[in-house]
Amino acid sequence: MAKTHVTMTVNGAEVEGLVEPRTLLIHFIRENLQLTGAHIGCETTHCGACTVDIDGMSVKSCTMFAVQANGSAITTIEGIANADGTLSALQEGFRQMHGLQCGFCTPGMIVRAHRLLQENPSPTEEEIRFGIAGNLCRCTGYQNIVKAIQYASAKINGVEFREAAE
């Protein structure tokens, strides 16, 4: 099958490659670009571990062809830290609130939560849970992931984070 030349901006850098039409975006990102932060979990559009941000949308990159991302701007977990290399508010939140155990779902969780907070900087707990409904975590029970996102929301808004009483 003839390969197609694609170019895209990934984490601020121009990248290019030759892809078969059937190459899934997650495979292009992990194998061609060697960015292995986004994970391949279920491969069936359920788990969200492969979530990347494409032109302002959270997308499961196992359910999109690389050729469809031609010309787009993509952010993966590798592009989430602050420009000076320090942890972003979300990354800091996940560390402070113990928002991960095995860590497999974390890249997808953070990239998804990044877009959620862009669209709604002060989500309620219910909005957070609804907003990350496309990302599965089998370790945490989500409690600390929700807290991590609340922590990041507070930090972005310049207010003090207070954990809700349990």
Binding site: T45, G48, S58, V59, K60, T63, F130, I132, G134
Partner: peptide, 9 residues
């Protein structure tokens, strides 16, 4: 319908 990621596409 589905989840946020799926609704974007």
């Amino acid at each position: 319908i589905a989840d946020p990621q799926v609704r974007y596409r």
